[in-house]
């Protein structure tokens, strides 16, 4: 009961059983796997967001960073560079955009909510000023790479899961992770303990940007064209995934496992609602309800266990 991940885990199982009973399409495993490509970008954003939220910050600009990176990369590829250069370019641009957020938060000591609100408007604004209403075509060599699969697993899914694994290890097994939990719990205490608060913050935002760079490549390859108005509201989806996965928005608590489970939950809910022809309007309502209910459930579970702890200490006295 101590780990909040059991809530998305149980919900995921319930959702899968429910939809598998209702719809035959939902029992089609290759379809389910293939469909993950649409949701993998959101997952990558959520991985970065997990780190940012655990360290007590928030990044509202992830969606705009994704769009700007993908537009710049598509434009850059128009000059006719080989794929490998374009991939490197996207990763560098993403990392830089993330690092700008990190520098403003860490060294200018500005609240991350407002900094990233600003860069959210700014990054998408740059993409809009650059492309206007037209789209930038992605070079043919880059299109459709996302449809390739290894042993039936589409590449975006593999990339998402391996990123989650690597970043999860970074978070839960390495020094950087320990710093982040410390900073998220109490920034001043972390500073006096000797944690490099500023450096860790910049690293977190830059790493998020790096992951967004990967997502931007997947987006380009999937859509074949880059526009400034793609994926509106994806940042809120990413935050929803992270928070429904048991990461505390106030920082200091959370896990990568929770984010992955919650990603699965939202993926199954979305796909299930799609194959059972639930209207788009109801889908939004249901997603909103899931977020509120899962956070509510975590709250109750946390209260329950802290009450029990209090009782135990009382008995001990």
């Amino acid at each position: 009961m101590k780990r909040p991940e059991w809530i998305p885990a149980i919900l995921t199982i319930l959702v899968v059983l429910l939809f598998a009973k209702v719809s035959t399409d939902f029992r089609d495993i290759p379809y389910l796997l293939g469909n993950t490509t649409i949701f993998a970008e959101t997952g990558l954003l959520a991985i970065g967001m997990t780190l940012v939220i655990i360290s007590g910050n928030i990044d509202l600009s992830v969606g705009s960073t994704l769009i700007l990176t993908s537009c710049l990369t598509a434009k850059f590829m128009g000059a006719g560079v080989p794929n490998i250069v374009a991939i490197g370019f996207a990763l560098i641009v993403g990392t830089l955009l993330g690092a700008i957020n990190g520098l403003l938060v860490a060294y200018a000591k500005l609240p991350s909510f407002l900094v990233t609100l600003g860069t959210m408007a700014m990054y998408r604004g740059v993409a809009q000023a650059m492309l206007g209403a037209s789209g930038a075509d992605v070079a043919p060599g880059m299109k459709g790479l996302d449809r390739a699969a290894l042993l039936g697993l589409p590449y975006p899914l593999i990339i998402f899961l391996s990123c989650a694994l690597v970043v999860g290890l970074l978070l839960h097994r390495m020094t950087l992770g320990r710093w982040l939990f410390g900073i998220g719990t109490n920034k001043d205490a972390a500073h006096y303990t000797g944690f490099p608060v500023q450096r860790a913050t910049v690293t977190t935002f830059a790493l998020t940007g790096f992951l967004i760079g990967i997502a931007a490549l997947m987006l380009n390859s999937r859509l074949g064209v880059a526009r400034y108005d793609m994926e509106p509201g994806i940042e809120l989806k990413a935050i929803t995934i992270v928070v429904a996965g048991g990461t505390a928005i106030s920082g200091g608590k959370g896990s990568m496992l929770g984010t992955v489970l919650s990603w699965l939950l939202l993926y199954f809910v979305r796909t299930g609602m799609g194959v059972t022809n639930i209207k788009a309007e109801y889908q939004l309502t249901i997603i909103g309800l899931i977020l509120i209910l899962s956070v509510f459930a975590q709250q109750i579970a946390a209260n329950f266990s802290s009450n029990r702890l209090k009782k135990q200490t009382k008995l001990g006295n």
């Binding site: 928030i58 909510f113 809120l236 935050i239 929803t240 928070v243 505390a248 928005i249 106030s250 309007e281 109801y282 889908q283 939004l284 309502t285 249901i286 997603i287 909103g288 309800l289 977020l291 509120i292 956070v295 509510f296 709250q299």
Partner: peptide
């Protein structure tokens, strides 16, 4: 409900839009 304001209102943002 003691849900943090950011989370609660992001949830209702989606909910009310639906």
């Amino acid at each position: 409900g003691k849900i943090p304001a950011v989370v609660a209102t992001i949830g209702t943002l989606t909910l009310y839009r639906g």
